[in-house]
Design a binder for these strands. Sequence first.
DNA 1: AGCACGCCGACT
DNA 2: GTCGGCGTGCTC
Length: 833
Amino acid sequence: MEIFDQPDTVNTQFAELLLPVPIPKLFTYRVPHAFNDHVLIGQRAIVQFGDRKIVTGIILSIHQQAPKDYEAKYILELLDNFPSVNDLQLRLFQWMADYYLCTLGEVMNAALPSGLKLSSESMVQLHPAFNLDESNHAFSEKELILLKRLQHESLAYSDIAKLLGTKHLYTILKSLTGKEAIILFEEVKEKYRPKTEKKIRLTAQYATSDALEKLFNLIASKPKQEDVVLKYLQHVSVIHHPEANKDGLSKKKLLTEEISESSLSTLVKNNVFEEFDIIVPRFDIQDKSDPPLILLSEEQERAQAAIFKSFESHTVALLHGITGSGKTEIYINLIRKALDSNTQVLYLLPEIALTTQIVHRLKKVFGSAMGIYHSKFSDAERVEVWNGVLQGKFNFIVGVRSSIFLPFDNLGLIIVDEEHDSSYKQQDPAPRYNARDVALMMAQMHHAKVLLGSATPSIESYYQTQQGKYGLIELNKRFGDAQLPQVMLADMGRERKQKTVKGEFSGLLLKKIDEALKLKEQVIIFQNRRGYSPMVNCEDCGWVPKCVNCAVSLTYHQFRNALVCHYCGYKESLPQQCPTCTSTRIKTVGYGTEKLEEELSLHFAEAQVQRMDLDTTRSKNGYETIIDQFERGETNILVGTQMVTKGLDFDHVSLVGIFNADRMIHFPDFRSYERAFQLITQVSGRAGRRDKPGLVVIQTSGPDHPLLKTILKHNYKDFFNTELADRQLHDYPPFTRLIEITVKHTDKKICKAASETLADQLKQNLSYIRILGPGEPAISKIRNQFLMNILLKVPRGKFDLANIKKTIVTLSTQLVTEKEFRSVRVMADVDPM
DNA sequence: AGCACGCCGACT
DNA sequence: GTCGGCGTGCTC
């Protein structure tokens, strides 16, 4: 590999590469002299990493310091002749790595669509000189199985692992390599391919009117071929505009019933026509229809003016607008204004809200300058959005949390809609970032403005407005003066005594559903738990089926007739007989969306009941289908999880039923009141539109709970004040910043010991902040890993956060260098939700 | 994170 | 003896 380079000269350059691996350092590669004038910071480069792996890295810096302790490998290839990642992004990535306590590589992994991260896969193929019958080696059974398959095709490591049913391929592969039966190679997968269209045009020699005349004479006896040429000329008037031939005609357009592929290919063979490919975008180039004039209500006008006013003195403004108050119209005006002044705009939405009406509406207004970034998009589509932003094709992006990673270079406005939504926080793989907070940081870097919008702002954001840090704009009236829904509580305790409860339904809710259906109105039922029942148990001995990998009971799913673990996916069938006492009296405990769906169908036999949860929306269009059916009125009752709480505006919903409010309120977590308030308010907002106020029925066993009282009154401010006082009393955000550290290990004792050691050391080194734990989390084992949590409460603004984080990282890395804790995993979650 | 390599116990 | 288990260290 070194052969192609010249010997060392003065100008030998090295590049620091960011690789998509969770190792907290950069890697130095040598720049081949041939690339000296082409290397750019932010450019993608292909390098070999380790013995044979090939990966894409990003060039972070270029210098001339040869590493002292090792020989740098060469950069194999530079991808593109432009940087894929700009300077602002690199700064943002670094900030995220520091703030969220993860490596730059992890940020890169999350940031780049995998189409931009080509990487190699280890493959195995038969040795070209190998012949099984002539080989004088002996082979084991597994080796033979593998060799037989390799006669037909090359296999990836993962395929072989599956084929042989073992993870340990090393010895087998080593033995076969030794016998010269196989060779190993790396296959680089170029993941992104642009979409192309086949086009046809006349070859240069026939693209003049003279030549065409000759051609017609030539093919006069071949009517089929004549037809092809005529059809072509019909679409492309070569005679009048010879230059039009250059763009040709799409093959699809040319080939119709009268025109066959074979006569065309004869003409191609005879060099009359030629085929060529052009790259076409995957997204319809749909230009904006005439932007509908948006008429703002007086209230909206006032809010809009207030936002502009606020932006004069504040970077961030919070628009607190109750459901149905018409925030979208205001957004559209702001976006337009930002685009008019030639800056980019990012509009963030929670995952689920993105698939709905709002996107269609924006598309109509902004046309093809608007790009959409969604997790259900294919990788190729995502690369196209990325490149579209890079090339300035998209100035406006509507997207989910990961769209903060796109290569913006000149943002003027970021809108974070439903700013309180927990789907902005990435949970599992690091970086565990909150897109709302990253957006605030981005805005600082771009000198952009941020508009946070919510009907139920997070305590943190609202607190900032009270401190004067953010502007606050309230939108208190529903659009067109629609009324807020009336909220009623169904007292389950009293109803049980009076025996008016049927199944899981209170008499009150049943009666109201019945009334709504009679008026041909629609009903939404909210139950934040999927499956049929969260648990089953044996009535005789109390046995409960548990997950084999996690410390949770299994949820019973009726449609699959199986017990399923919601944490690791483990599945088993529902036993007919209790395995401990052989009793057949196995019953379900508790209820989820499935069971409610079943009961509703029983109570209201004539009504169409539809369920919307993770299980019914898994397919690509599952969600849209359910929404469409509901919108068209084909569904009378919609039962669902959180999904029904967001972004849906229906005109005929008059009743919302809420189950298990108690479980939401009493969830053991400092945010449970906030979450319950938000969820209940959001789903209540689905009831009633325009002319008629809706009704919300909350089923509860504790109707006197103060939180329910504030919900009844629709009083956000009350809720905020009470909650804030409580947060202050118990040292929770916004008064402190939380950092949660989780220690993981397959052995419970080691996990415990490691977490205790770490907590002790943290307490010693950071004696000035409160450190709680280690404690066992509610679910103490997931995927066979035991978990322990340590919680750090850092008072806001008093201490050097960067320093504290550094200590955490140092102590955690130190911990795992201790012999007994070698395989312990330590993860940090900054600002957990 | 992968992946190579080496050491160990449980079997033919 | 060998196979397959797992712990350990490294990646420019």
